[in-house]
Design a binder for these strands. Structure first.
Lengths: 360, 360
DNA sequence: TTGTATGCGTTATCAC
DNA sequence: GTGATAACGCATACAA
């Protein structure tokens, strides 16, 4: 019995196969190699051939097959943005959107694509690492966080060009990173409150395992020392509003006479203000509060927040550019870049006491 | 003169080349083909061979070369998230983070990667399209917006599996999308205000070129009609707080006696409340205000917002799953999915008048 | 300047 | 069940 079944149809029945370099060369009347050269920079190709190929590209709507190209060049034309443990809290942070926007900006008019790598904690952590070292991307930008140390080390061993946004814990293995001057930011906060005449200060610091939090706290302490003040009480929060509120409650329980608080994040500052007001204190009348991040809510909060701002978009753009450079010229190991921070004054530390005289 | 320069060193000096399937087969004592089969599902391969290969994989740390695989399978194992015109406003919207989180969730324990495609307006718009049709991804999820119509049509022609999040303008070419019941949401808002006894209503609608805005407005109007009320005054905003405030100012200028406002987004609702209070009205005392989205700020605003909520994460997860299915079984053209919306009651429409009696 | 030939690492076909 | 062998689409060393 004859086999009368039709030949197995190709997977993609709908659209006709996209033209290959072969087709292009044929249409342009040149060889594959010439066509290839014309496409990539057009070096060592006659003007006529170049023109012919370019016209053919337009006619056929030719698009190079990335896989084939990648197979031979060993370049993928894509980089990864690694976000370790993206719990909802992390994701909702506008920080994220900014980072993505910045990197995208750095990548524009480049044909480099951004692939998102969210490594979940419950996941086999090494899965992300495997992908990274699998040669699927030409480089990676890692949003630093508490566990970043292991990442830094592992990635350094890989040899994959990597830039961290936010200084990772382990900077031993000459990792490259972009960060803002958190120490300077903390110092700014201290100076501002001291300059306002506040003397009974306290701080709600961030998690002790995050470099940004540690740095801000160090700057704050240095700033106080600079002014001849003793170290202030320190309570740790988790960068959230609730955490800030809880921290503030502990603070006023143990130190009822404070007149100034530095919260290491705007969200925490909001919580601090809430808790203080719930405890009958006025802000900034009784207690001046300063936040950090210049989060969107800082300006629109019931009590607009004085805060420390950092050029986040610029940092992300820079990280993107640095990565591209490092990919282009491996081994150049660029120096870490630290962006300056600035104070933004708003109502939460307004000099004019709201109703402080009555309460003091 | 002799050329004494050393041979050009390979591009990647640092790391040794990753093991290939050939190496793997050698180590496992089988042929390439068997090794390949063992890796992909292990069909038609003896238990011994399978075990040998698996052990070799562990020993060598073998990772399949995606490019090579993609070249022959014509599958890229990656999908694109297309975000048209990602201006800062769009990016900062938590909507984004949620979409990414949801899609990522749908992709977990799949080896499919998510690549971000932000097509800027000033960019050659077709660039993104070229990438999409270039076979670089197996499918795409498009976050719908005002210009989505062209996208829908173009992508439909491409034959690339595509899911829209938010109904695109042009649904003619049987595009598949996931949306929430915006009409129902608008109706909920109307019913709620009417149920509260408010009769002199008005709405701050969203941009007239966005389907979500149009639908919400339609639902609102239908809801009023249902209650035997005439169509309300309509002012359009741009979904931002400032836009909402501006709209509210026009509203009270032209209709000073309103006692209820439906804003098509929480951000606009915030602006509306601001403007109303600046004009000496109380909320909800004089005027009840209801928002839309259940944005994070809705709960924490000075006047917590009554709002309409939609299961955004679920929608994104669904979109991801649908895309995977469509990729797996092309041509199945799944039906659009509409998620229900719900009312969340908060202070901005509290029944008990705050100080309304005095003002009325 | 151009074309020829080779190889990149995999999967798929088909005899065995 | 297994193993040769032929694509896949492209870039490049080399010969012309």
């Amino acid at each position: 019995m004859m086999n009368t079944s039709p030949p197995r149809s190709p997977r993609r029945t709908a659209s006709r196969p996209s033209p290959t370099l072969e087709d292009l060369a044929l249409a342009a009347g040149v060889s594959r190699s010439t066509a290839s050269r014309a496409i990539n920079g057009g070096d060592r190709v006659s003007p006529e051939a170049q023109a012919a190929v370019e016209r053919a590209v337009g006619d056929l709507g030719y698009i190079p097959n990335r896989a084939a190209r990648s197979l031979v060049t060993r370049r993928t034309s894509s980089i990864a943005l690694v976000i370790p443990e993206p719990d909802v809290r992390v994701m909702m942070d506008p920080f994220f959107a900014v980072v993505i926007t910045g990197i995208t900006e750095a990548l524009r008019d480049t044909d480099v694509q951004l692939v998102l790598l969210m490594s979940r904690a419950d996941d086999d952590a090494s899965r992300t690492l495997r992908y990274l070292r699998g040669g699927h991307v030409d480089g990676a930008i890692v949003v630093s966080h508490h566990e970043a140390d292991s990442w830094a080390r592992s990635l350094a061993q890989t040899g994959l060009p990597t830039i961290f946004i936010g200084r990772p814990w382990d900077t031993a293995s000459d990792v490259t990173y972009v960060d803002s001057d958190n120490v300077g930011g903390g110092r700014l906060a201290a100076r501002h409150l001291v300059g306002l005449g506040r003397r009974r200060l306290a701080t709600v610091a961030g998690p002790a395992d995050m470099t940004a939090a540690v740095d801000r706290l160090r700057g704050w302490t240095e700033g106080l020392a600079e002014a001849g003040l003793p170290a202030s009480p320190v309570v740790h929060g988790d960068f959230t509003t609730e955490g800030g509120a809880a921290a503030a409650r502990r603070l006023i329980a143990e130190h009822p006479d404070i007149d100034g608080v530095f919260a290491a994040s705007d969200l925490m500052a909001l919580g601090v203000i809430e808790a203080l007001q719930a405890a009958g204190r006025t802000v900034p009348g009784d207690i001046a509060v300063i936040g950090y991040d210049n989060h969107a809510v800082a300006a629109t909060a019931p009590t607009p927040l004085t805060t420390i701002t950092q050029p986040m978009v610029g940092m992300a753009v820079r990280a993107g550019r640095m990565l591209l450079e490092e990919i282009e010229a491996p081994g150049s190991h660029p120096e870490p870049v630290i962006y300056p921070t600035e104070l933004v004054e708003r109502a939460s530390t307004a000099v004019a006491p709201t109703a402080s005289a009555a309460n003091a």
